[in-house]
Design a protein around this nucleic acid. Structure first.
Length: 121
DNA sequence: CATCTGACGACCG
DNA sequence: GCGGTCGCCAGAT
């Protein structure tokens, strides 16, 4: 799987801003959801100038493990992003993917499968 | 091919 | 607000 489209969006993240895995997954229509978005980041190639440190989890939580996690904090702080313990103030720094990455910007609505609620209920 | 794993998110209690 | 669990799917063994 080529995460090029994912890296494209990540590179679109302006300085001093952050985004979430879910946002990428939604913007790129990733099937696996945030999980797939995370997979892409885990495979983030170095040397491409990809600001992976601007990608955080839900609520701005920093999920990236060490030593990258520590690095991420440093990077964000260096960009002016205020960090609270292991979180980022999304209401101030959250950046959303514009949506101009895939060629088919039509965003076709696929058939939604009903969630099986009888499981963990 | 089968099995385990993982930079996540949503839901229930 | 927190913990346990499922769902998703690609990569590695």
């Amino acid at each position: 799987m080529s995460w090029d489209p994912v890296y494209k969006v990540v590179k679109q993240i302006p300085r001093g801003r952050v985004t979430t895995y879910g946002a990428l997954a939604k913007a790129l229509r990733l099937r696996g959801g945030a999980r797939t978005a995370g997979r892409a980041m885990a495979a983030t190639p170095s040397g491409k100038g990809i600001p992976w440190h601007r990608v955080v989890g839900d609520g701005g939580r920093l999920l990236i493990p060490e030593p990258y996690g520590s690095l991420q904090r440093k990077m964000l702080q260096s960009e002016g992003v205020e960090l609270v313990e292991f979180r980022v103030d999304l209401k101030c720094y959250l950046w959303s993917p514009v949506g101009s990455k895939k060629k088919g910007a039509k965003a076709k609505q696929k058939a939604r499968r009903p969630r099986n609620t009888s499981k963990r209920g």
